[in-house]
Amino acid sequence: MTMSVKRKVLLYLLLTLTACIVFAPTFIALMMSFMTSQEIMTGQIIPSSLSFENYLEVFQRFPLMRYLLNSLVASLLIMLGQLIVASLSAYAFVFIDFKGRDLIFFIFIATMMVPFEASIIPNFHTIRDLNWINSYQGLAVPFFAMAFGTFLLRQNFKQIPKELKEASEIAGIGDFKFFLTVVLPVAKTSLLTLAVYGFLTSWNMYLWPLLATTDDRYRTVQFGLRQLQSQEQLNEWGIIMAGAIIVVIPTLILLFLGQKKLQQGLTEGALK
């Protein structure tokens, strides 16, 4: 299909314009993170020199390193937990035919209608009573079970031929071994998609870490940003932006690497 030159020019124009607008907030923040306060006050757009002063400053003044580490540990924990729990459930829904399966599946669907915010008060009390305030398990365990991830993997497991399961049964291979040695390797890409998605959402979590931690030793980066923003009396924007850029770099890299897979995975999980 060929396209007229006029139409091409128009499209590129629209694409460039919209991309500039969408990307502007991020771009401005990135530029500001290299600027001195004076440059920011005078409304410069491009920094006069590439100075990492703000980055050094933000690490010195805030326990940002600790926050980054906490976020990393909590996000990895949630990611792994979700992968294990969701893949086990998805396996049961696809490969084990038992009475009551449909009912349980319906209950799984129903869980999607309960917003976490609606049950956050007792959850906070549960974590407190377990003595899990200020702990990694307190940050992570409430998010291990996940209907969306189960659906996504169920979709993928369904594509594995039933004959394979029958053959393995005849060969005397148990369910758990079949799950580990056949199903998981085949579903590698879906697992990866879910992992990326789980990591992204956990890294960006805001309300729960705010409640479940009170001690700097367990605070996460999102709380760090809140602290950075409220303590710096809005004058040292360069430092604040440097902090924000550090926080978004891991997720942006992950997104760029996994964009295609993520898009496929999310669309599949959502629509089939």
Partner: peptide
């Protein structure tokens, strides 16, 4: 262009709020 449009998904609510606080 696709990557630029998708980029806001990788930016947490807290970071995005900081960006917009300035704007």
């Amino acid at each position: 262009f696709r990557t630029m449009y998708a980029s806001t998904m990788g930016i947490s609510v807290a970071a995005a709020s900081v960006f917009w606080m300035f704007l």
